[in-house]
Amino acid sequence: MNSDYVMNISQIELYDLLKSKLGNREARALVEFVSDSVSEKMQEHKLVLATKEDIKNLEVRIESSFKDQLKWLIVLMMGFSSLILALVKFLPLVNA
Rank of each mutant, 00 (worst) to 15 (best):
L83T: 08
V88W: 08
S3P: 06
D68H: 10
E26D: 15
L83I: 11
D4R: 03
Q11C: 03
T51A: 06
L17E: 15
F80L: 15
E40S: 12
D54L: 03
V75M: 13
L87V: 10
L22Q: 02
A29V: 01
Q69L: 15
V6H: 00
N2P: 02
E40I: 11
T51Y: 07
L18R: 02
A27P: 00
A50L: 15
M77G: 12
K46R: 14
R25E: 09
F80K: 06
V60Y: 04
H45T: 13
K52V: 05
V6E: 00
N57G: 07
E32Q: 15
G23N: 06
N95E: 10
F66W: 11
H45L: 15
L91F: 14
D16S: 14
E44M: 12
V38T: 09
L14P: 01
L17C: 09
P92I: 04
V38Q: 07
Q43H: 13
M7N: 02
I55Y: 03
E32D: 13
R28A: 05
M1C: 01
L47E: 14
L85W: 08
L87T: 07
E40H: 14
Q69V: 08
E13A: 10
L91D: 07
E40M: 09
M78H: 04
L93S: 12
K19R: 15
F33R: 01
N24K: 06
G23L: 10
L30Q: 04
S65K: 14
E40A: 14
E44K: 11
F66N: 12
L91Q: 08
S65D: 13
I62K: 04
L76P: 01
N8G: 07
